[in-house]
Nucleic acid binder design. Structure first.
Lengths: 195, 195
DNA sequence: TGCATCTACCTAATAGCTTTAGGCAAATGA
DNA sequence: TCATTTGCCTAAAGCTATTAGGTAGATGCA
């Protein structure tokens, strides 16, 4: 009996590939076992359970996304940085739809704290350094950027923009441009706004 | 043998309630059957399958959300309309987290076309009439609003904003205000922008 | 009212996924 | 070379989905 050489890392990687091929929801312990031509029960020496597998795929995706973000941000600032970072999200979701979905998998608080999630927020703040925002507006802006990136990408993945003109790429560019403009002219609180 | 009086509507309603209680992912044909104290197979006279059940819950949620949106928009315009409509999304997601998730369930194209989804887009365009946008910018703006509303609400539901200051309500208000400002001063295309 | 039909819900069965318990053989290391 | 560790296996129980076919309650018509 030749051993398959299973490790948590290989299982996670295979799960991530499977997610991209058939969707994160369809990733099961059984399907991963099949991929290694191994009995299902064998995976339970490496994984706690199904939730554990999904959590690991989510962490992998978050880390990959953060790595790409860091690379994109290197040597860039201002609108250039904003655009590059935004494209990282959108491109990743298009190249790896299953992993992108995995990245939105709800993690347990402790796991989330130890994940690459924090790096994402740090990078957004780094981008915002190119704009003139101070707390608490910077935090509001981080949340806005996160919402737009995630919201757009997931609506697009759901096909929401695929059956109407203009094409999605154009909206994406214009939206990122408009965010740049908004960040450059972030309005003061409504009650005192003279915008 | 007393009959339970199952109908597609009651099953859908029960499924929606279940979704709010335990999460849309946990809504199963079995769980709904249990709720009516009926055998699982009995539901298959009313529902095609599990996917059918989920689709119906999604349609219910989309319709409820559209109804609330329409009510909120009545007699309002401009920033007032924008704020009220935005709050409809956020409040609905908070009151009915399972239904809100259901509303994002990917529908088959024909089902989607017949759903309340179109009403949502129409309402956004109605709001934008209060701003000075013409095509294709209006479409870009519809997509931006959809992205921000959905993105913010789903990140918030995932707990992304719950462990840091300032509190989520404040960010939400400021973000909606900033969108209002952005729509009032929508930048021309980048290449010719003098913003 | 009585009977035929319809249909709502049932039992039974198959199949897939999850998870645990316990076993054997390959790898490791003294 | 032998003991130990450990990787993968078989077996089994429990849950969900789905289909086929049966029975009794509800409905409609004479």
């Amino acid at each position: 009996m030749v051993r398959a050489g299973l490790t948590v890392e290989r299982l996670t990687q295979a799960g991530a590939e499977l997610a991209d091929e058939v969707g994160f929801e369809q990733v099961t312990v059984s399907a991963v076992a099949r991929r290694f031509d191994v009995k299902v029960a064998s995976l339970y020496s490496h994984l706690k359970n199904s939730h554990d597998l999904k959590t690991r795929i989510a962490q992998l995706a978050l880390a990959e996304l953060a790595d790409r973000g860091a690379t994109a941000l290197a040597g860039r600032a201002g609108k250039d940085a904003l655009t590059a970072f935004a494209d990282v999200y959108r491109d990743y979701a298009q190249e790896h739809p299953g992993r992108y979905t995995a990245a939105r998998f709800r993690l347990d608080p402790e796991v989330a704290a130890a994940s690459a999630g924090a790096r994402h927020a740090q990078m957004m703040r780094a981008i915002l350094r190119g704009y003139d925002l101070t707390e608490p507006d910077q935090t509001h802006a981080v949340r806005l950027l996160g919402s737009v990136f995630h919201g757009y990408v997931s609506l697009e993945a759901a096909g929401a923009f695929s059956h109407s003109a203009p094409d999605s790429q154009e909206s994406w560019s214009r939206i990122v441009e408009s965010l740049d403009a908004l960040l450059r002219h972030w309005p003061a609180s409504a009650s005192v706004s003279a915008y």
